[in-house]
Design a binder for these strands. Structure first.
Lengths: 221, 221
DNA sequence: TTGTTTGTGTAGTGGTCGTTACGAAAAGAC
DNA sequence: GTCTTTTCGTAACGACCACTACACAAACAA
């Protein structure tokens, strides 16, 4: 680790280049971003890209992973810090309204939009799997909220999770279509109106008792 | 019109070919559907396609127009036939749950998904404009509902319209991700929970009094 | 029949796609 | 210095993209 590399040193910063690739994929999606676009955005030549990141698909996978750990981490934080299901998912929607319209990066959510209309099945499926996983984590958190007495026992956890996810996905598309932050925030608030009010104050606040399986893996739906 | 064509007659049915092109674009989106895919799906050769439909972009525009008048017409019907704003938009969401999962054609909504991640700006903008137009028609209908006393005067028409549109767009994505019809129907019902109840029964039922500008131009969001 | 018009099939156009061979350049090891 | 290792820039690869030139086929008009 302290030992220097043997050969000629890399002339670019790998993390910076990865971030620039993230911006390109986030903006234009997997399929529409050509390797030529990538090399231009990253400021490196094609052979350097292939040497450092494998091929286009592998680079995209690394981008998605990095995105999940940075921009997409707000969901995990909300789940970890908010004591109730309603609080957690409400916060996810409200923070999404900010993230999706923040300046300094493209609009909307990379995981929601970057692999739509993608002719590489593995890439399309990889993002679909992440969306599914997040719906599942929504549902698990809601189920736990029902068990904890926060929500009425008759609550349909699957439906409420899918509804919340649909709102998040719609917010992403509207962000890309030019909606303002206030537009998205209003959508989030309106969605939370149909959430049943909590029947009991949360008993055990804090993150310690989460199940790993119900923590969103990066973005929110 | 009764006069026959002068030259060699076309060896395929233009409307059938258009329908097959619709299926291809609906399934894979504008960019990802190649002319080669199209000629295969339509059962004709490239020169025939170009002679009958212009170029790929023009064909897509014709596809979108035909889609708006057929599959996408449920929105206009709901607006024409339902007396209240709540009834109209609720019906749009419920019928979308069916359309988006119907067998015999691809899932979700062509207008919502077919131009995502599209590198041809005119095509991307054309569909975005249709989505915007439908949000506007949602908003106009809600505003009229407020004026008619169906909805509380304090209702934020823009927010409620965008919320409803976001749900519709999320439903389309989830349909493409494999959600069942029941999943989508439950999302629609849940969305309607946050809609305020009508404060007055509708006074003037029927379609006659619509303003043209508030009729959705083909799909719903 | 002959000419005109229109559609069809073959076979291409130049351009871009993702990817890579190859030799020069820049570092440590000896 | 020379060897080895790794990265660099140039310049391509075959495959596919949207699109079309061209010659032939099939209809009507004369």
């Amino acid at each position: 680790m302290a030992t220097r590399q043997r050969g000629r040193p890399r002339s670019f910063d790998r993390l910076t280049a990865l971030e620039q690739a993230t911006m390109a994929f986030w903006e234009h999606g997997y399929e529409t971003t050509s390797v030529s676009d990538l090399t231009r955005a990253m400021g490196i030549s094609a052979p350097s890209l292939y040497a450092a990141f494998g091929d286009k698909k592998t680079l995209f996978e690394e981008v998605v992973e990095a995105y999940a750990g940075s921009y997409g981490s707000y969901g995990g934080r909300a789940f970890a810090e908010e004591p109730t299901a309603r609080g957690a998912i409400g916060r996810v929607l409200r923070e999404a309204a900010e993230l999706f319209t923040e300046s300094g990066h493209p609009r909307g959510c990379l995981m929601i939009s970057a692999a739509t209309n993608c002719s590489t099945p593995e890439v399309e499926e990889a993002l679909r799997a992440r969306r599914e996983a997040n719906l599942t984590s929504f549902e698990a958190r809601i189920s736990r909220g029902i068990e904890a007495g926060e929500l009425s026992p008759g609550t349909d956890a699957r439906a409420l999770a899918r509804f919340s996810g649909a709102v998040l996905q719609g917010m992403s598309q509207q962000a890309r279509d030019g909606a303002t932050r206030e537009d998205l925030a209003a959508i989030a608030e309106w969605a939370m109106r149909s959430w049943p009010a909590e029947t009991t104050p949360a008993i055990t606040p804090g993150a310690a008792q989460e199940t790993a399986s119900e923590t969103p893996a990066g973005y929110g739906a």
